[in-house]
């Protein structure tokens, strides 16, 4: 399991999540941030500080945002 950043982050990129992540799992993409699912420890610190409620636990991602689960994962597969 991991936390996932969804569409409200697009062009918001407020970055509170980056500051609180204890394992530095959150990286900047072009127009939004992504969480590395292999590094995320499910502590939920990011979910609490997101000013636009863009972050969900993987199994709680709303249906219309589900594509972000693979987008988060894909981002890290591409940069690694």
């Amino acid at each position: 399991m991991a936390f996932v950043i969804t569409s409200p982050c697009r062009n918001e990129k407020s970055a509170e999540c980056v500051e609180v992540c204890p394992v530095d799992a959150i990286h900047p993409g072009d127009d939004m941030y992504f969480i590395d699912p292999d590094v995320c420890i499910d502590c939920a610190a990011c979910e609490a500080v997101c000013p636009v409620q863009a972050i969900y636990a993987e199994e709680e991602v709303p249906e219309e945002e589900e594509k972000f689960i693979s987008l988060n994962r894909k981002y890290f597969e591409e940069i690694s």
């Binding site: 500051e19 204890p22 292999d38």
Partner: peptide
């Protein structure tokens, strides 16, 4: 007070078998 970060760091060098982290 910018919070804490953690990493396995040197533990990975002790010859232990890992799966991911």
């Amino acid at each position: 007070n910018y919070g804490f970060v953690s990493s396995l760091g040197p533990i990975k060098e002790w010859g232990l078998e890992f799966h991911k982290n």
